[in-house]
Design a protein around this nucleic acid. Sequence first.
RNA 1: GGCCCUAUCGUCUAAUGGUUAGGACGGCUUUCUUUCAAGAAGCAAAUAGGAGUUCGAUUCUCCUUGGGGCUGCCA
Length: 474
Amino acid sequence: MTKVKKEIIRVRIAPSPTGYLHIGTARTALFNWLFARHKSEGKFILRIEDTDIERSEKKFEDDIIAQLEWLGLKWDEFYKQSDRTKIYSKYIQKLLDDGKAFWCYHSEEELEKERQEQMSGKGVPTHWCSHKPQTSNLKPQNLGKGIIRLVADEKSTRKIKFNDIIRGEIEFEERLLGDISIAKAVDTPLYHFAVVIDDYEMDITHVIRGEDHIANTPKQILLQEAFGFEQPQYAHLPLILGTDRSKLSKRHAATSVAEYRKLGYLPDALVNFLFLLGWTPEKSNHEILTKNEVIEQFSLEKVHKSGAVFDIKKLNWINSQYIKMENDGGLAKLVQPFIEKHYGPCDEELIIKIVPLLRERLEYLDQVKEFHFFFKEPEYEKELLKWKSRSNEEIKNSFKEIQKIVEGIGVEDKNKLRQELDMLGKRFEDRGLAYWPFRVALTGEKASPDPVDIAYILGKEKTLKRIQKAVNKI
RNA sequence: GGCCCUAUCGUCUAAUGGUUAGGACGGCUUUCUUUCAAGAAGCAAAUAGGAGUUCGAUUCUCCUUGGGGCUGCCA
């Protein structure tokens, strides 16, 4: 069963379609992708691990594919384990024929009870199966409802070792592993089995995966040994953690890539954030980098060992940096669907006009919903129009003056309008008295961009209308 | 419980057997200012504890403690 291995780097991302693409899976994919691309000849493989037919769903598979593409992590080869059952059957049958695997008929209840007893005592939860044939010439048979296990050596004193590129040598005691389950039937392999066969069949040279798989590795090595497969190189990535330092899950934050996409995080920004979790660029004071810049300097040896907390504030900052890098046209295109989601169809000309204002203040695209005043009449309490301790009459007077200005010079010339307002502010000896009521009239908010900019975008007619509405309120 | 991984500011991290332990996000202050952002300037903030090796340890070794992962007929 040996075959000639090629020298080129081959790595894989192996998600199971039991949920939307997880942010942690995305980072694992990214590191695999970076590693493959860094070695220019490297191949990056996407393998859908859908051996669990109960939990696997097509919509999750579609999502994984869509989001990986969106992130720009394109794969060179694609496989699905459910297409490969014949391959697994062949290998399982061989193990059975060789007496290296056997049928175990313990019920799930029996096994559960055994586990409980072992855990409550000081034993190790390990199943050494009494159904194991005592002599290897006894051909195992499927007597009905059972499960296939790999024969292991209960009395072994050997340590199973492997070298992890990130962590160095790791070892486990073989006798603590038990007779591990490998398949529910000849044609339905379990995770460990499918992984080992696929990694071999696909000539995977480096298994780069999450730290949560460290304890799985010796079991997979046992399987490799049963077939005489060569061991791939391992690199176990640190986990992405929630704020309480446990594995990132839904109770901490959004965990699926799709959710971040929906909120208007840009793919390059998300990727930038992700590679900063567990890896540092050469010039560590310059953290905004493109994928291509990272490819050049990427190396697994520099990946950190300890878990990294997912900090949404840093993601927001990185995303805002990417938004600032977009030009008007680009940002308009990006933001349009978010505007239309909240406010319905929207004129492209309007979007182009407001984009410079958005650029300075959006952390993520969905925040455009805070700029409602561009798309619909503002609603607000009359109290909001008050500036400091100024009287209603003073506010009214301020509006009267602004009305005069706008009617006179319009809103097209922003500099002129600003000049006039500044002069008005000087006359009042209080710039706020000129600007504050004006902003509230236009936006209904106490915080917004410069009202002059907003008036310019709204146009003369709407501006005057909103001022009048404010005057009526007082 | 057992096995395994891990430990520098709140967070992501840099660095070194001898440094004022550096940067980024966030926070705070100041500035700009009609408000909010953005921008500019600045401030606070860390080597988990204990032994050992050493002239010297945050760095190397061991122990403790903390954190995490795994412990499925899930992946």
